[in-house]
């Protein structure tokens, strides 16, 4: 088990010595049990950092935002930025490094291992504690303990852990500057791609029946995109804000402006959006599961992403987030890539 004070001390030290200009981590939230991402800039604030099973967020997103801030404000960083990273956060950082989003020396990774645990799934927790949302949660070995209005309660890890954590094989942040907790790489709670395999047993008609219902429900709040550290494009294909309009711009030019996806939240547009996103994340998604967690209308987005992940692994032997040096999935090929489907 990790002592949270170790994380705080490390952060305080790094800040005090000026080795980092800030530390991205989690602090206690103001509503309910959930922690929230934070950026600590002063040594004395380091004690606000927390590490508990509500640290859902993939903090690599905050690194992306920090990078964007620097670029937009035309500033140069005075020192690296520190980040507390779980296994999946670190895998996301590896993909960002692979894509040269920033340099390795720009980041100081304080790794935290999820060991034999993971983060909670709030929906599962609520079902277990009967409507009384807990006010706090903590790791308890393989299980969790939560505080509710009716008192403390122990919850079995396997029952309330997020699906993504049950399927996770790499709970230890391999890429790190310093790391806490035991390396449990290779642990196996649930068969990987189990949910995917179950879904694929459906026939074509049933699959479409399922997905059209999901696509119909999407409200296009873009939380899936916004929360994803890999969705870092300054202009997303759905936004189409690039066209500058001048007095001489004609109606035809405006009408012919490429709009791949309209703003209307209807099936065709939603389907195109989600499929485009899945393809854009192929070989990049590290299955942190954040998109599925934040979706307000419960679209099982991990299914789309893990489908691409398994395909990349099985057809092309590609493992996203495994190493910094390797090529990206769709910018590389092998002579023996499958091609039987081509006439």
């Amino acid at each position: 088990m990790i002592n949270v004070q170790d994380i705080r001390d490390t952060a305080r030290d790094l800040l005090a010595k000026g080795e980092v200009r800030a530390v991205i981590g989690w602090r206690a939230g103001s509503r309910g049990m959930a922690a929230e991402p934070c950026v600590v800039t002063k040594p004395e604030e380091a004690d606000s950092l927390v590490w508990d099973p509500t640290c859902y967020h993939n903090l690599a997103l905050q690194l992306v935002n920090d990078r964007k801030d620097l670029v937009h404000s035309k500033k140069t960083a005075t020192a690296p930025i520190g980040i507390v990273a779980k296994g999946c956060d670190a895998r996301a950082i590896v993909v960002l490094l692979q894509e040269h989003y920033f340099k390795r020396e720009d980041v100081y990774i304080i790794g935290v291992s999820c060991e034999n645990s993971g983060v909670l799934d709030e929906r599962k927790v609520k079902a277990q504690v009967g409507g009384f949302a807990p006010s706090a949660a903590a790791f308890d070995g393989d299980n969790f303990s939560v505080k509710t209005a009716k008192g403390d309660k122990k919850l079995a890890g396997r029952e309330v852990m997020a699906d993504r954590c049950l399927e996770c094989r790499t709970p230890f942040p391999k890429e790190n500057n310093t790391a806490f907790g035991d390396d449990k790489t290779g642990r196996e709670f649930d068969a990987q791609f189990a949910a995917l395999a179950r879904f694929e047993a459906n026939d074509e008609a049933a699959r479409w029946e399922f997905w059209q219902r999901q696509f119909d429900r999407c409200i296009r709040c873009f939380a899936c995109r916004s929360v994803c550290p890999m969705c870092f494009c300054d202009e997303c294909v759905v936004d189409s804000i690039e066209m500058k309009i001048a007095p001489e711009t004609t109606a035809e030019e405006k009408a012919n402006r490429i709009r791949w996806i309209e703003r209307s939240a209807v099936r065709s547009e939603n389907a195109t959006y989600h499929m485009t996103r899945a393809l854009h994340l192929a070989g990049r998604c590290v299955d942190c599961g954040e998109c599925e967690r934040v979706c307000p209308v419960n679209i099982p987005l991990r299914l789309l992403n893990t489908k691409m992940e398994r395909e990349a692994r099985e057809a092309f032997g590609f493992d996203p987030g495994a190493s910094i040096g390797g090529p990206s999935l769709v910018a590389s090929f092998r002579d023996d890539d499958p091609g039987e489907f081509i006439r």
């Binding site: 694929e200 074509e204 008609a205 049933a206 699959r207 479409w208 029946e209 399922f210 997905w211 059209q212 389907a271 499929m275 899945a278 393809l279 192929a282 789309l304 489908k307 691409m308 395909e311 990349a312 057809a315 092309f316 999935l329 769709v330 910018a331 590389s332 090929f333 002579d335 890539d337 499958p338 091609g339 489907f341 081509i342 006439r343």
Partner: peptide
């Protein structure tokens, strides 16, 4: 080569969401 890899993924995804295999061809 790149097309073969990329469009393999498209083909798989289309089938995954329940679009008929024969709608896309290469």
């Amino acid at each position: 080569y790149l097309a073969r890899r990329k469009l393999h993924l498209v083909k798989e995804l289309l089938q995954f969401v329940g679009i008929e295999e024969n709608r896309f061809r290469m």
